[in-house]
């Protein structure tokens, strides 16, 4: 297996080397899982986009390690993996925020539907002779 660009052969151990193909493998595996979930209609495309982007970034990140290292040193992070984790946390937070936005929107929609339902139910009960079933608890 060839090394990603910029990684000198002599400087990494066998264990260190495996991470360069394990991470992309894991990343693309999750992209595959996401695509499969979309295919089965269990995940909407719009909701999957940010997740796909997250895992693609994870998958390709080992190929940019030298760049990430340089960037880490440039901004004053002297233990480069910290920057890697920071980026991961950023993407996770973005996904969580996205979820909260969706929940807020759905709460609003749920409220409106519930309100409309109660008003329409009242209207039906008033205009028909059938008193209808009592509302279930």
């Amino acid at each position: 297996m060839s090394m990603p660009p910029g990684i000198p052969e002599g400087e990494v151990t066998t264990a260190g080397r495996s991470i360069y193909w394990l991470i992309p493998l894991a990343g693309f595996f999750f992209v595959f899982v996401l695509l499969d979930l979309i295919r089965k209609r269990r995940l909407l495309e719009t909701h999957a986009l940010l997740w796909i982007l997250t895992f693609v970034v994870v998958a390709v990140s080992p190929f940019f390690l030298p760049l990430l290292n340089d960037l880490a040193y440039a901004v004053g992070i002297y233990y480069p993996p910290t920057l890697y984790l920071l980026i991961a946390i950023f993407f996770l937070m973005a996904n969580t925020l996205r979820n909260t936005l969706d929940i807020s929107r759905m709460t609003e929609q749920n409220r409106r539907l519930t309100q409309e339902l109660s008003i329409l139910r009242n209207q039906v009960e008033r205009t028909s002779d059938d008193p209808g079933d009592p509302p279930l608890p």
Partner: peptide, 16 residues
């Protein structure tokens, strides 16, 4: 009577 099937909270009930 307007029966809300879910508990929406005081404000949402008034708004109904």
């Amino acid at each position: 009577v307007l029966s809300l099937p879910n508990n929406l909270g005081y404000g949402a009930a008034i708004q109904t």
